[in-house]
């Protein structure tokens, strides 16, 4: 029964090997999707390339469907799976700052690592910048501590908040994603920029 490593208390060395191999798949998938190109990522926000939408939601749905079925089939103990903790203020503030960082810098941390790996100099600049940003947060932590730790409710699931089953929520998200994919495909035709897409 999963999750394998915490349940069977696997050794640290093997755990790190697993981490490396999962990262290998993560980086490979991101790079194959084209996330090593900042202009492809930024295309999401101007409509000429909506790969980010398609990859992100397909991946999230694959993950949530898989977890829902594994839970249903008793293959994974969901009580020890980490559900992101609810601190509503800091999630919104952090998300807004990250959103500005995305449109200014053209990457997010994971995609910058994968772009840096194929030699994008702008990705190395982004990576350097992100270390500075983390350092700045660490140095000014006392200023934000109150709001950072405000309104903690534990790992709250959206399905519980809405009072619906996990399966029904996943179904709603799949329907919403299909509609968004349709809009994305439309946007790529409406806002197409062959001059940009042929270069990225």
């Amino acid at each position: 029964m999963g999750p394998i490593i915490p349940v069977y208390e696997i050794s640290t060395e093997l755990n790190f090997l697993v981490a490396f191999l999962i990262g290998l798949g993560f980086g490979f998938a991101l790079e194959q999707a084209g996330f090593s190109s900042s202009r492809k990522l930024a295309g999401m926000f101007y409509g000429y390339d909506t790969t980010v939408l398609k990859v992100f939601f397909t991946a999230a749905i694959t993950g949530m469907l898989g977890l829902t079925f594994m839970n249903y089939l008793g293959m994974i103990d969901m009580s020890i799976v980490y559900v992101n903790e609810y601190y509503i203020e800091s999630a919104i503030i952090g998300g807004v700052i990250m959103g500005i960082g995305f449109i200014v810098g053209g990457f997010c941390p994971g995609t910058s690592v994968c772009a840096a790996a194929i030699g994008k100099k702008d990705a190395w600049a982004f990576l350097g910048g992100s270390l500075i940003g983390i350092l700045l947060f660490g140095e000014t932590y006392n200023w934000w501590k109150d709001i950072y730790t405000k309104n903690f409710l534990g790992g709250v699931k959206l399905s519980d908040t809405l009072g619906i089953s996990d399966g029904f929520l996943v179904l709603l998200i799949i329907v919403a994603a299909i509609m968004m994919f349709w809009v994305g495909e439309w946007a790529e035709k409406k806002f197409k920029r062959p001059d940009i897409t042929k270069e990225m």
Binding site: F26, S38, F56, N84, E85, Y87, S90, A91, I93, G94, G95, V96, I97, M98, G99, I100, G101, F102, I103, V104, G105, G106, F107, C108, P109, G110, T111, S112, D122, A123, A125, F126, L127, G128, G129, S130, L131, I132, G133, I134, L136, F137, G138, W144, Y148
Partner: peptide, 22 residues
């Protein structure tokens, strides 16, 4: 310069938000 600035914002925001896009 823009990439480094965006990276700094993203890095700062990722600490505030307890994680990034991934």
């Amino acid at each position: 310069i823009l990439a480094a600035t965006g990276g700094a914002l993203f890095g700062f925001g990722s600490q505030f938000g307890r994680g990034c896009t991934s």
